[in-house]
Structure formats: structure tokens, C-alpha cells
Amino acid sequence: MQYMVLLSRSEWEDKAPEDERNRIFGEIQQWWGRLAAEGKIVAGHQLQHPDTATTVVLRGGQSTIVDGPFMEAKEVVGGYGILDVADLDEAIAIVRTFPSPSGFAEIRPVVVR
């Protein structure tokens, strides 16, 4: 099954000292690379800061452009990955090892047509 893992952007990305941040990003890159090589992660990206987001609001054929992300949440999305694994338990087991010191990771199955 394929799942999208939606990763939150965590505080440490903005607040941790630079060498600390680089160390964590290094670990994440290694983690990602290993799983991609194993075929468990089939796609995904880290996203730029939510300040860079642009939202298009669609309403009955009309559209307006808004500066910023559309989710008015405390947590913002920092990246995503597509997992290709046997079941939810395998997805959870993988996501549990994501080397971020804090944050959230939402696992959602993708629709297959």
C-alpha cells in the first residue's frame, strides 16, 4: 500500500543552533536515502518555509490569490514522503524512526484508482 506521510515543520528548524540543525538534517538525509534505496520511500520533498506559500482560493469559477498557506493551523507542513509498504504497521514502524527531535507525522493512505 502507498501512504503519504505529512511531516510537520518543527521548532528546531528555526531555533536550533546551526551546527545542531545541520547534524539533524544530515541524519534525516541519511534516513531518507536509505529508505529510498530500499524502495520504501518512492517520492517526497522537504518544503520551503510556509512564508513562501501562495494559496489560490477557488470559488464558483472565480479565483483569488492569497499570500500564505491555506491551513490556519499551529502546526505547518514541512515536507512529505510517499511510502510504499505492506501495511499501516510497517508505515508506523518506519515513521517512528524519523530522526527529528520533535514534531508530528500524519500517515494517510493514498486513493488508488
Binding site: M1, Y3, A86, D87, L88, D89, A91, A93, I107, R108, P109
Partner: peptide, 14 residues
């Protein structure tokens, strides 16, 4: 069914 919750007996540390 939709989320692929498996039908298995967890093993080991789990």
C-alpha cells in the same frame, strides 16, 4: 480496510 491496518499478531518488542 482503507488505512491498511493489518490482520496480524504483533511480534517481538511490539
Amino acid at each position: 480496510v482503507a488505512a491498511g491496518i493489518p490482520y496480524r499478531i504483533p511480534a517481538g518488542a511490539e
